[in-house]
Amino acid sequence: MDLQLASFGDLEKISTIEKETNEYPWTPNNFKSSLDAGNSSIVLKDNKNILGYAFFSVIGTDSHLLNITVSKNYQGKGYGKKILKKVLFQSKVLGASIVFLEVRVSNHKAINFYEKFGFKRDAIRYNYYDGNPKEDALLMSKQGL
């Protein structure tokens, strides 16, 4: 099992996992655009099998976690922690001193997960997520990587 950078060749599998796992999934185009834009990415692979992934963007001293997902079949095994740990490390290596993220306010499981990693609740962005009804986003950040 190892952590690698995501490549365009991974996007089909990533998109399938995304669709199976997230209620509001990124589209294949979202992933492609993210790579095109030069955002950083990490894929956790077991042989050729993708277990999870993360996309994040580092600009100056700010890192922004855009997407982190573990495939449904592999959840609860600590892979999310492994991926997030790597995101924090890579962000630091790339010069970031703070990592931001947004999460749906209803996603208590994710909020709890981020808090265990030392992310603090900063603010609410109202009606941030599309949908019916729209949902608020909780902005969290972790300083001192």
Binding site: D62, I98, F100, K120, A123, I124, R125, L139, S141
Partner: peptide
């Protein structure tokens, strides 16, 4: 702007302590 605001606040509060929610 929001990120900048949060960073400013983090620079004000005591090291290690948390500021309450907005």
């Amino acid at each position: 702007e929001l990120k900048l605001l949060i960073k400013i606040l983090k620079s004000i509060v005591e090291d290690g302590s948390e500021y309450p929610f907005s």
